[in-house]
Simulated assay, not measured.
Amino acid sequence: MALRERVVAFVEEGHSRRAAAARFRVSVKFVNDMVILKHETGGLEPRRQGNRGGHGKLARLRGWIVARMAAKPDLTLDDLVLEIADEHQMTVHRVSVWRTLRSLGLTHKKRPSGRRTKAA
């Protein structure tokens, strides 16, 4: 935070952004970003990173997916994608369904790793 404050204060004193970058040994982009951040928010706190989750296509279907998997736990990803398309008129990729299942804790292996069938 101290560097951000010093950089912005230096620019606000009337120095150029390039001069601020050279003096504090940072990039011109960093200086520009800090000045813009100060102008937009009034502060220099870092913005939140990443997506906040829960706003994807499948967010509203989470309950339905849980109920469907409870009713028929042996559904494949492709089967679930087709059911979502039929019942909810929504096109989703199987990876999206996989991520939703994983976030719900509904992943499983068909056979435990210690009990694999052996060739005769």
Rank of each mutant, 00 (worst) to 15 (best):
L3R: 13
E40G: 05
T76I: 07
S103N: 15
V95M: 07
G105L: 02
R60I: 15
L37I: 08
L104N: 07
I84K: 00
R52K: 07
H55M: 06
R111I: 12
K72P: 05
G50L: 07
K72S: 15
F10N: 03
H55K: 05
H108S: 07
A9N: 04
E12N: 11
L101V: 03
E5L: 12
F10E: 07
K29Y: 09
R115I: 08
K72W: 11
H39C: 12
N51R: 15
A85H: 06
P46I: 05
R4N: 14
H88E: 10
D79R: 07
D79T: 06
G105I: 00
T117Q: 09
T107D: 10
W98L: 14
K57M: 12
R102W: 02
V35R: 03
G105Y: 01
L44G: 13
I36V: 15
R23Q: 12
N51D: 12
V11D: 07
E13P: 01
V81G: 01
E13A: 12
E83I: 02
K109R: 11
K109P: 01
E87V: 03
K109W: 02
R60G: 14
R4E: 13
V95P: 00
K109M: 06
R25G: 09
G114T: 11
G54T: 01
F30I: 08
